[in-house]
Amino acid sequence: MAASFLPFSVHTVRGHSMQPTINDGERVVVLRWAYLFSAPKAGDVVVFKGSDGKDYAKRVSAAVKNEFFVKGDNEKDSRDSRSFGAVKKTSVVGKVVMTY
């Protein structure tokens, strides 16, 4: 399991909706302390806890108060990405700062 007390964590991305930014199977480094003193802004790629308990990687498309709308970068998957609900700041795990 990820060491959640650390300022960052590494994850393997599963799925294609963030292509071409992140490909299926690529690793990402998530800065978990990125939003301690600020809020996610449009354009950030974030990892957040979905309502089903899984972690998801998406790009913030718009921010309203403490809620954020997220989308996948893959235009072909845009229909499905719109099925995400607004994400609360408290559900955000951190910001994707690197892929490898």
């Binding site: 590494v10 393997t12 996948g72 719109r82």
Partner: peptide, 27 residues
């Protein structure tokens, strides 16, 4: 980072879309 993965194994984050909530926008 590879060495770090030995200590903290990467967990999966999902970039596919199977969360049925239903939020859309017109922006």
């Amino acid at each position: 980072l590879r060495k770090f993965e030995l200590i903290a194994k990467p967990t999966a984050v999902y970039a596919h879309c199977d969360v049925p909530c239903g939020i859309y926008e017109t922006d």
